[in-house]
Design a protein around this nucleic acid. Sequence first.
DNA 1: CATTGTGCATACTTTAGGGTAAGTACTTGT
DNA 2: ACAAGTACTTACCCTAAAGTATGCACAATG
Lengths: 122, 122
Amino acid sequence: MTAIKETSTIQENKQYALEKCPVTYVMEKIGGYWKPIIIYHLSSGPLRYSELKRAIPAVTEKMLIQHLKQLEADNLVIREAKPVVPPFVTYSLSASGNGLLPIIEAMATWAFKDKEDGFNIS
Amino acid sequence: MTAIKETSTIQENKQYALEKCPVTYVMEKIGGYWKPIIIYHLSSGPLRYSELKRAIPAVTEKMLIQHLKQLEADNLVIREAKPVVPPFVTYSLSASGNGLLPIIEAMATWAFKDKEDGFNIS
DNA sequence: CATTGTGCATACTTTAGGGTAAGTACTTGT
DNA sequence: ACAAGTACTTACCCTAAAGTATGCACAATG
């Protein structure tokens, strides 16, 4: 993962925001471009790595694996690997990851309504 | 064959994600470092620009005004200026902006629980 | 007459994160 | 022999968003 420079105000401010703001906390966990999409795809059941890859064609392998690793590190998804060859790895949502689904749904509801109402081109 | 890149994949992918994913849509609106914090501070009532500035000392004026402008453009906050000098400008949440509060609350609940459960190394 | 306080604007720099391209190890199929 | 499929890894590049620094117009205050 990208090495973080410990002497940047960006990081300091992120710390501030993380403590002050639960939204930022959540963002840290699901804020990557593909994370919510991955979570969405896993919400209907476990998937293999290659299944995810095919389900989200636009994502590159690097991004997919990177986000999966982060999600795993944050205990949102669970990785299970069978020691066979060719490899057999499945990803599924953890309890914590499942807990995000209502939030995502609430967002979807808001987004839908906002898109409707917002015919106001200012 | 001067292959000048006129379209970035980042933008293409953002488009993809925006259409496919309500979370990304919401992120686009409240995804800035300071936006949720601004919204939080406005949730208890309208504030003047300078009051916001003092309420969130860590934010720079550029970021504050930039995010306020974006929030205004997205119809999440309402700017009201009195044509007096010194200027008197207040910001308040719009109906749409208020609609975000339940989401933020849901996030707060999740974040709180996640922090508790997850005394995970990281 | 210089400072303070309002609410911004704008040029320049940094950095975190996303993207590209290529390689790895191992086996099965042709 | 070689391609294809599995699940990654690594080195490097590019950009959008965040940050730094400064300036503006105006009035009241010391």
